[in-house]
């Protein structure tokens, strides 16, 4: 037990960020694009389904944040293993998105970032704040 760091219980009793679907008010094209991006994740990825809400928040932000950076050609932090692991899933997602969504090439960096931020919000809604999973708020593994 020597290596066992004290758990941050406050973080585990996380606050809700979204109270409704953040994509609801987006324009139809954005909605359509988000749906494609979301669909790929839900069918092919597992990282969004860590068992606890606080982990899901970190996973979504870490992987989608890094995916956005990759799509924008920006440098990505891989300095520690946990970051590197996010990066791995981000690389896979970036490749899939480039193949699946040729229109991404025509978007500006700002547009990509905005879109990915909205996707992050949507994933948070879907898998955390709007989720029906009653075990997300359990404070231990």
């Amino acid at each position: 037990m020597a290596n066992h760091k004290i758990k941050n219980m406050a973080e585990r009793k996380y606050q809700k960020v979204y109270t409704s679907n953040p994509v609801a008010d987006a324009d139809p094209l954005t909605k359509e694009r988000i749906a494609v991006l979301e669909h790929y994740i839900m069918k092919n990825c597992l990282w969004q389904f860590n068992s606890r809400g606080w982990d899901r928040r970190k996973q979504n932000a870490g992987i989608l944040g890094k995916t956005a950076q990759l799509l924008c050609g920006e440098p990505v932090d891989v300095s520690v293993p946990l970051e590197k692991c996010y990066w791995v899933d981000a690389v896979m997602l970036e490749r899939a998105y480039r193949k699946l969504c040729p229109w991404l090439a025509d978007l500006s960096k700002d547009d990509i970032k905005a879109l990915m931020q909205l996707l992050n919000a949507r994933m948070d809604w879907l898998t955390i704040d709007g989720s029906l999973n009653q075990e997300l708020t359990v404070v231990n593994y």
Binding site: L46, N50, L82, Y141
Partner: peptide, 24 residues
């Protein structure tokens, strides 16, 4: 199999900083 063994991965991540990579 995350169902049966995610707990130890999550604890290893928390206690030892070893990342968890889910695969199929």
């Amino acid at each position: 199999c995350a169902r049966s063994a995610e707990y130890i991965c999550d604890e290893l991540r928390e206690r030892y900083g070893i990342p968890r990579l889910d695969i199929d």
